[in-house]
Amino acid sequence: MEMDGKEARSKRQKPAMEEKKVDLMDEAVAKMVEKEESETHVAGSDEMELQVNAILEKIESFTQLVSELLESGKTMFKELSNDFEERLIAIHKEQMEKWQEEIKDIRMLDVSNEEVNAILLNARDLLEKRTLDIDQGH
């Protein structure tokens, strides 16, 4: 049971950890861009500045793409998780209904068997009585 508690805490912490990862990634990119911008102001030709800016735009674009993919992936996994949960609950419900039907059938069979048993006991008693009557000459 101890493991279940740890797993539950871990699962609750994962979304927060994922958000921290994205935030850390954004911070790292921002620092890198800031550093690049400060370094480019030191010295460089216009052509070099254009190349650096093109790379910085690629970094920003790639970071945005990664962020969108992360969000898309999280959404997809959440939907899959919800679908899985719903299906598993439906399977459980179906199985419970089947077993309830089996219980009902068994109870009906038991009632029927008891009725038949009572009829057979009455018939046996009547036969025994009849046999005694015949043996006694009546």
Rank of each mutant, 00 (worst) to 15 (best):
K35F: 15
E85F: 08
E2F: 00
M25Q: 10
E114F: 10
L127G: 00
S112V: 14
E19H: 11
E36L: 10
S81M: 04
N117D: 11
I134K: 05
L56R: 02
D26C: 07
N122L: 07
L70F: 11
E94N: 09
D4N: 00
I119S: 01
M17F: 12
N122S: 11
S61G: 02
V22M: 13
M96C: 08
K93P: 05
E71P: 01
R107K: 13
L70Q: 10
N113W: 03
D125S: 11
E47Y: 05
E47T: 06
R9C: 06
I91H: 02
A118E: 07
P15W: 03
A30V: 04
E97F: 04
K129Y: 06
A30T: 03
A118L: 12
T63G: 06
L50N: 08
L109P: 04
R87L: 03
E101N: 07
I89K: 07
I103E: 11
V111E: 12
N82D: 14
E79Q: 14
I103N: 04
R87C: 02
E47H: 02
Q100R: 12
A28C: 11
I134W: 12
L70W: 08
I119Q: 06
E39W: 12
E85V: 02
Q51F: 08
L69M: 14
E114P: 01
M3Q: 00
L65Q: 05
E60H: 00
I59Y: 12
E34W: 04
K129Q: 10
L70M: 15
K58F: 06
A43W: 09
E36G: 09
L121H: 13
D83R: 14
A28W: 04
S112Q: 13
M32A: 08
S38K: 06
L120K: 07
R12D: 11
K129F: 08
E27V: 11
A8K: 09
N117K: 15
H41F: 14
L121F: 09
E85T: 03
A16K: 07
L132F: 05
L69H: 12
K20E: 13
E57R: 05
K104M: 15
K93D: 13
M25D: 10
D135P: 00
K31V: 07
E7F: 09
E128A: 11
D125F: 11
K20D: 12
L80F: 12
T131K: 09
Q100D: 15
A54P: 00
N53H: 05
H41G: 15
L24M: 14
Q64L: 13
K31R: 08
A16P: 01
V22T: 13
E27D: 10
T75I: 11
L120N: 05
M96P: 00
A123D: 10
N122M: 04
A118K: 03
K6M: 00
G44R: 02
E60G: 02
I55N: 03
P15A: 04
R124T: 12
H138R: 06
S45V: 03
T75G: 14
I91Q: 06
L88Q: 10
N53C: 09
S112W: 00
E2W: 00
K20T: 07
L127W: 07
H92D: 13
H138S: 09
K98T: 05
D110M: 09
H138P: 02
T75P: 02
E2K: 01
I59T: 01
F77A: 04
L120M: 12
N53T: 04
R124V: 03
